[in-house]
Design a protein around this nucleic acid. Structure first.
Lengths: 343, 343
DNA sequence: CTGAAAGCGCTTACAG
DNA sequence: CTGAAAGCGCTTACAG
């Protein structure tokens, strides 16, 4: 198999620096047991020579690998591709490679991928897909990740997972509250929800926020139509058709992510339903095209790219006793797809 | 570093199967020198035990790695995330991991990433970003990839690159011709082009197609405004503003990819320019939101997901003397953003 | 067709 | 603080 031109080995660096293999290894790993002066010298020599450790040898010998494993539900979905972009960007500046795999929103596949990544001896695992509300669905993944951390691996998750690890927590509940408040303040009461799979914590958290806002206005989520569908554009299209058919008096639709909201807009347009004059539509995430739609989509902005960067940043920090948890903040972005309730 | 529970080694499989380490290795690698009966037996035992080779040991010993390296310009761009999705999908079914990295449309970064991937001993490299028209810009990458292939690595590229490797060739020129023909047949003559960086083969090929169509109608590309900008949404926005300002009589705009076309639509909308009544707009790629825009974007569909799958498929086939080249086909998708020239 | 042994490039006890 | 040596789990000449 290909071996890089620069088949420079640690022995070469050691020889050049005039130290033993062991000392060179310790110096570069930043392990103690080497005088600071010597270590600095070795590092300088390694730098001048452009030495890059053979990750396979390192891993085989029991060292850790700099590779980052990233699990997303589906990279073709802009929500995840923006997160991945953030991870790749930061990884690039740290000279780390990123292995990406699909979980397809299937806990079993997710488990398989986690095992694959561990088998490949990645040093870091980032789980970017939503967690599952039912702990049983994640029990095995949780055990696997715990063992991985026990053995020195680093883990960070994006979203609410049943895993004890550093976490980036999207402002799902507060965002749900904000978007619902927005529609309520515009006078809407006959609001329909286009929801994703109820097993995802992302979905339940966003719904919880919406429910909280409704209650402050004396409404109950249970009394509103909640159409559960795929977390995708075609899911949104189907759901919108159902809403038009079953709940024709609806004046506003909240889709639990932008992909679905875009599908909703598409169906409404096909049915020549004026947005926002007859029905207001709001989404969640603020994927980059949301601003370019017509009408521009009112949505809750989550900083996906930064979320990816932040997750990797957390994972790269030395672990602490209690996992870190970082909120993301959110921002209600009001564009043209929402307006006053039709009189 | 984390070691999987199933720290099952090849010796364990060999013992269980009652053969030597060497025989077990050969049997699983499908190398000859083992009777077919014995080999089958070893493979069955390995399967039952759930054995997975330690890729690091394999790589160190000189074997090849099943990891796939994928280089994209920017994973946040839907064109690339759809290609990546195809690669990940096929890789998943083959139990291969995929390492993705950004080249940022910078030949130097691309070269660095290629070197990184080779240093990580990936078995396959897929270059998904456009090639560069100037061979000098790719000279080093080309040499690096050639050496990699020489050493047994497999390479596939998407787009026209100065590399001798299996290639998936998007129908850029024919697509350019199709979209230009479409606008010409609608009566447009004052067509402006929103172009990406002229150093990319994707750009020059699409322009060449447009030029060919124009010539058939007695027009010359050189006489039309070609605004060169970033291959992104904001590039499209800027270019559209320039066109409105400098070439106010323009009746149609061809953007060389959908990202830019979406930016163009956005700017036209901000300026209250009716599409397609006053200006028609067409894009290229058919990213998934193109259908959901309002007006729906007329564009040239390239099968990005399949392109990703196909590239990996080619790379996974045994190499042949002459690199394979597969065209992608294309399809002009006429939606609502293009219409007859205003009278 | 099959096996014993060397070696890939590291890290890490174990001595000094 | 530093070094010599064993060992990680494979593959691949080299013998038989």
């Amino acid at each position: 198999m290909p071996r890089p031109h620069s088949a420079l080995r640690l022995v070469d660096v050691a020889a050049e620096a005039g130290v033993s293999l062991a000392t060179a290894s310790r110096a570069l790993a930043g392990r103690d047991g080497v005088s600071e002066r010597l270590a600095a010298h070795v590092r300088r020599v390694a730098g001048e020579l452009g030495y890059v450790a053979n990750m396979h040898a390192r891993s085989l010998a029991g060292g850790s690998t700099s590779t980052v494993g990233l699990i997303v539900h589906e990279i073709g979905d802009p929500y995840f591709s923006e997160i991945a972009s953030g991870v790749l960007r930061l990884a690039g500046t740290e000279d780390r490679m990123v292995q990406i795999c699909h979980s397809g929103r299937d806990p079993e596949v997710e488990l398989r991928q986690i095992r694959m990544l561990i088998a490949h001896r990645v040093g870091v695992i980032i789980v970017a897909g939503s967690g599952y509300t039912d702990p049983a669905l994640q029990a095995e993944s949780k055990a696997e990740l715990a063992a991985f951390q026990e053995a020195g691996g680093r883990v960070a998750v994006i979203g609410r997972h049943h895993v004890s690890a550093d976490a980036v927590l999207p402002d799902n509940e507060a965002g749900g509250r904000a978007v619902a408040e927005h529609l309520l303040s515009l006078g809407h009461r006959r609001i329909a929800i286009v929801s994703g799979p109820g097993v995802l914590t992302t979905v339940t958290d966003r719904l919880a926020g919406i429910a909280a806002a409704l209650e402050r206005h004396g409404l109950r989520l249970a009394d509103l139509p909640v159409v559960q569908t795929d977390f995708t554009g075609s899911g949104g299209r189907l759901a919108a058709a159902e809403i038009l058919r079953e709940y024709p008096r609806t004046t506003a639709i909240i889709a639990l992510n932008d992909a679905m909201a875009i599908g909703v807009l598409s169906t409404l347009r096909a049915h020549r339903v004026a947005v926002p004059e007859r029905i207001s539509v709001a989404g969640f995430d603020d994927v980059s095209v949301a601003a370019d739609l017509n009408p521009g989509l009112t949505t809750v902005r989550l900083p996906m790219t930064q979320m990816g960067e932040l997750a990797l940043e957390l994972a790269l920090k030395p672990p602490v006793a209690r996992p870190r948890r970082k909120g993301t903040g959110h921002e209600l972005v009001v564009r043209d797809s929402t307006g006053p309730v039709p009189s």
